[in-house]
């Protein structure tokens, strides 16, 4: 059914979470629109009808009218109570995850979305989900506040560093949906985007299996994959350009000037410290914005990353 304000809302790809929201959005917007038109017509009509004729115009003394006053308090009150109830039930639904939901863990950090699946598969800035099955995201931030928002599903929740939060949805069409970060988190907040990739159920199983093994190959190959998977490339280029952080090109072995003016040679230990605790030594000319990877990457993974960085001459 076409509705007056349909053009305002994006696609609805998760009816179980979106339908109630959309219904209420249309209800409020339509009622408001009617009232606004009413008020506007009254304003214009009065302005024309009672236009001042002369400076000596006399006006009647009308001080108040209790019936009017009560009706335009009580009627809006009743309408808003309906809106409250409707909004509340829709919201309860958004907070009540179906029992059979498939769980995926989300870790947000400047300026990436990491997703961990039940079989150990990991993705960065791509959330793979099966169609027609409820999905629950358990989310945590590794630095500041972020907020997970998928307009097409009508779900949003802040992602906090000190507690888990969750959202759920059930996508009904294979395809893609946009993920935004909606809590301001610094320089590249507006680039903290990701995609939901909605698979047919069997296709999803295949995808999980092929990606379940994590990184593989020689240490350098593994390091290369890790640098992508861990979001390093959001801030470090491989070709010498300066983005948020220094480029990885030619990094190993070079003399680095730190913010306090001292210099260090980039060796294994320095890189290890830079990954685990980047605030300890901050490179001159850069802000201390790198999220610590303490607890996020294992010793072996760090070694592999280092081996890979050595190859970037």
């Amino acid at each position: 059914m076409g509705r007056l304000f349909d053009f305002m809302l994006p696609d609805n790809q998760s009816p179980l979470t979106a339908d109630s929201t959309d219904g209420l959005f249309h209800f409020i917007t339509e009622v408001s629109f009617i009232l606004l038109v009413g008020i506007t017509i009254a304003l214009i009509y009065f302005a024309i009808k009672y236009k001042r004729k002369s400076e000596d115009d006399e006006t009647p003394l009308i001080t108040h009218n209790n019936t009017l006053e009560i009706s335009w308090s009580v009627i809006p009150l009743l309408i808003t109570l309906v809106i409250f109830g409707w909004g509340y039930s829709g919201w309860l639904n958004l907070r009540s995850v179906p029992d059979d939901a498939y769980e995926i863990h989300v870790n947000a950090f400047k300026w990436n979305w990491g997703f961990n699946y039940s079989n150990g598969a990991q993705t960065l800035n791509e959330l793979h989900v099966p169609k027609g099955r409820p999905v629950k995201l358990v989310m945590q931030s590794r630095d500041v506040l972020h907020s997970f928002f998928v307009p097409d599903f009508r779900v949003k929740h802040d992602v906090l560093p000190n507690r888990y939060t969750y959202v759920w949805f059930q996508a009904e069409e294979a395809g893609e949906a946009q993920i935004f970060c909606t809590e301001y988190c610094g320089t590249s907040h507006s680039n903290m985007l990701a995609k939901v990739i909605i698979h047919e159920p069997d296709e999803f199983e295949t995808w999980l299996e092929t990606n379940g093994g994590g990184v593989s190959g020689s240490p350098v190959e593994q390091g290369e994959q890790l640098v992508s998977l861990q979001g390093c490339k959001t801030c470090h280029s491989l070709d010498g350009t300066k983005i948020i952080g220094p480029s990885f090109k030619g990094l190993f072995g070079k003399q680095e000037t730190l913010s306090d003016g001292s210099t260090v040679t980039v060796d294994e230990n320095y890189i290890r410290e830079s990954i685990l605790n980047p605030g300890a030594k901050v490179v001159q000319g850069y802000d201390n914005v790198m999220t610590p990877y303490e607890g996020r990457v294992s010793d072996d993974e760090i070694s592999n990353i280092i081996e890979y960085l050595k190859t970037l001459k």
């Binding site: 409020i28 009232l35 008020i39 808003t80 409707w86 909004g87 829709g90 928002f149 009508r154 909606t182």
Partner: peptide, 22 residues
Amino acid sequence: TIGGFTGITLGALSVDIHLHDT
């Protein structure tokens, strides 16, 4: 009046989830 009405929209729980910080 438009500001007020859209405030009602934002006060409705489920709808605000979608509209918050947009």
